[in-house]
């Protein structure tokens, strides 16, 4: 019995880590439904354990992205200030909301993520090999921290900088200019920071990484290339998740006997995936994942509405 349960938790974590790493989601989006619907854990406890998994995958992949200079540390730190503040707020709000309200929010988040993935799949089909777009960039997979970094592409803050829109103070302009990369300038930072704040709230509230909000915010609003946005979002997830996780941990919402096997599974799944991801047909997987998300959203919505849960639930 203990062996089977521990193995199931680790296996579930591994599946979540694998899917999350393959599709650039960090794994959190699946750990919460798995623990609440599959193991009957309270939502807040599941969110807390999920955040631990998010921190592990974020830290392992961020180490490699930093060495490769794909992640922008300066931009990440600046946005983290807002994302961590959002996580603090989200952590407090989570304790004020009922389990059913949280399940309803999770269902909405799952539907939104499914919709985003579906759009990516459609965009990939349309664009084929036409070059990187929001839908075709490789996902942020967790990588073994010891992996050899690729050749560096130069530091950040050294390029010819365009003056960001809406910024007039010389001090602010020089600060924001230093956040840019070798081939891009940071734009609309206030809006990007607001979205990072929102991502932080979502992260702490639902136990997810927040990349679903952060990546488009950095890519479409701030103007960072998608590869940089994905890597920097991965870097930021650690701080955002730790702000939320601290709230849960210090309030006694984490069960170490559940968190341990799940964290081990998530990490192993994410690391193994980084070695296999290039062999997996991502588009097919993405469509399969959309189906899984829709089903999970349905189960979560049922829980939110107080309806009997389907065969997956306990």
């Amino acid at each position: 019995m203990p062996v089977a349960l521990i193995a199931l938790l680790a296996l579930g974590g591994m599946l979540a880590g694998t899917f999350g790493a393959l599709l650039g989601l960090g794994g959190g989006i699946l750990v919460v439904p798995m623990l609440t619907l599959g193991f009957g854990l309270p939502f807040r406890e599941a969110a807390a354990i999920s955040l631990m998994g998010v921190i592990m995958t974020s830290s392992s992949s961020a180490a490699v992205y930093l060495r490769r200079r794909t992640a922008n540390l300066r931009l990440g730190l600046t946005l983290e200030l807002f994302a961590a503040t959002g996580a603090l707020v989200g952590g407090l709000v989570a304790f004020a909301l009922s389990e059913r309200a949280l399940a309803g929010l999770m269902a909405a988040m799952l539907v939104y993520t499914a919709w985003t993935m579906l759009r990516r799949a459609i965009a990939e089909r349309r664009e084929g090999a036409a070059g990187p777009t929001l839908g075709t960039d490789p996902p942020a997979t967790a990588v073994p921290p010891g992996a050899a970094p690729a050749a560096t592409a130069g530091g950040y803050g050294s390029a010819a900088i365009a003056i960001p829109r809406g910024m007039s103070s010389p001090s602010a302009v020089s600060y924001i200019a230093a956040l840019g990369g070798p081939d891009y300038a940071v734009q609309r930072l206030p809006l990007g920071a607001t979205l990072a704040f929102a991502a932080g709230i979502l992260s702490a509230l639902l136990g997810v990484g927040g990349g679903v909000v952060q990546v488009p915010a950095m890519n479409l609003v701030i103007g960072a290339p998608l590869r940089v946005s994905t890597a920097t979002s991965n870097l930021m997830m650690g701080v955002t998740a730790s702000a939320g996780a601290l709230m849960y941990l210090l309030r006694g919402e984490v069960d170490p006997y559940v968190a341990g096997p799940v964290v081990v599974g998530v990490f192993l799944g994410a690391v193994a995936t980084s070695r296999l991801s290039h062999r997996v047909p991502t588009r097919v997987l993405r469509l399969l994942f959309v189906a899984v998300l829709c089903y999970t959203a349905f189960e979560m919505a049922s829980r939110a509405l107080g309806l009997p849960i389907g065969p997956f639930g306990v």
Binding site: G238, V239, S242, V263
Partner: peptide, 13 residues
């Protein structure tokens, strides 16, 4: 393990 994981992002900052 959980403590190290939680403080890791802070250590990086």
């Amino acid at each position: 393990a959980l403590l190290v994981a939680v403080v890791l992002p802070s250590a990086r900052v």
